[in-house]
């Protein structure tokens, strides 16, 4: 099998040299090598390498781009990736380490959540599945995420469910539930966490307000331009609802 590994290009220089030396003095192995090489070359050049049809390729492109990554998010990440590439990997790693040291965890998540919220508002693509029925919204996430977010309707409390979408927070697909309150929109981001339960805490950033909590292995981030008191009320009602 060393002869085979040699013709498959899997040997390092030293082993390849040792094989070559052996082949010089061994007619039997030379014959084996020649045969293996012919079999490999014949297979490589003569066997059919099937290609996907154009129609199939188009359908799969739509499928691959449809669910987890919405177009706006994709563009943003590609630019970001290109920027990092041009900046150089070493510098990027250094910058990332500094971020890890200096920015508290919640700050990073809040910014990421806010990015997603604003991206959705600006692109006019805030909702992938529009429904006021939690029994429609919840199953919609099945098969699109590797977890099932809890979905509740708070219409009775003045925060009707409008729908949901899949959004990326820091590169990870998350569920974003969209609620209304008058003319305001509230995004409730949900993703699994290994952290234990944590009571709701408020933060604010750039005129937007946030409430975050952890419950039953899920991290929640509510973000909105609502005033803090109303957003707190939303968070309390949500946690109390069935």
């Amino acid at each position: 099998m060393l002869v085979q590994a040699d013709i498959d290009g899997e040997l390092d220089a030293r082993d390849a040299a040792a094989i070559a030396a052996h082949l010089d003095g061994c007619a039997e192995c030379r014959a084996l090598q020649a045969q293996l090489r012919r079999i490999k070359e014949t297979t490589r050049t003569e066997a059919t390498r099937f290609a996907a049809s154009d129609d199939f390729r188009r359908r799969m492109a739509v499928l691959a781009q449809s669910n987890v990554t919405r177009p706006a998010a994709t563009r943003r990440r590609l630019q970001w990736g290109g920027w990092i590439g041009s900046f150089g990997l070493g510098a990027a790693v250094a910058a990332a380490l500094m971020l890890a040291i200096h920015v508290p965890r919640d700050g990073g998540d809040a910014q990421s959540v806010l990015d997603g919220h604003l991206r959705a508002l600006q692109s006019g693509h805030a909702i992938d599945v529009a429904s006021t029925d939690k029994h429609t919204v919840k199953p919609w996430f099945d098969g699109r995420l590797d977890f099932t977010p809890p979905v509740k309707d708070l219409a009775a409390a003045g925060f009707p469910l409008r729908g949901g979408r899949i959004d990326a927070v820091d590169g990870r697909p998350t569920a974003a539930l969209v609620y209304g309150h008058g003319r305001h929109a509230i995004d409730l981001y949900v993703w699994p966490t290994v952290a234990g339960d944590a009571a709701a805490r408020d933060t604010a950033r750039k005129g937007y307000h946030f409430v975050t909590w952890v419950r039953d292995g899920m991290r929640f981030w509510a973000v909105s331009d609502l005033n803090p008191a109303e957003l707190d009320e939303f968070a309390r009602d949500w946690q109390a609802a069935d």
């Binding site: 799969m60 492109a61 691959a64 781009q65 987890v68 990554t69 998010a73 994709t74 990440r77 590609l78 970001w80 990736g81 990092i84 990027a92 990332a96 380490l97 971020l99 890890a100 965890r105 990073g108 998540d109 990421s112 977890f147 990326a168 927070v169 820091d170 590169g171 990870r172 998350t174 993703w191 699994p192 966490t193 290994v194 952290a195 292995g217 991290r219």
Partner: peptide
Amino acid sequence: PREPGRLMPAPSFDSIAL
């Protein structure tokens, strides 16, 4: 389950798969 704590933005699925 993983918290979204990755420091560099991940590539999109279609850019990996297609």
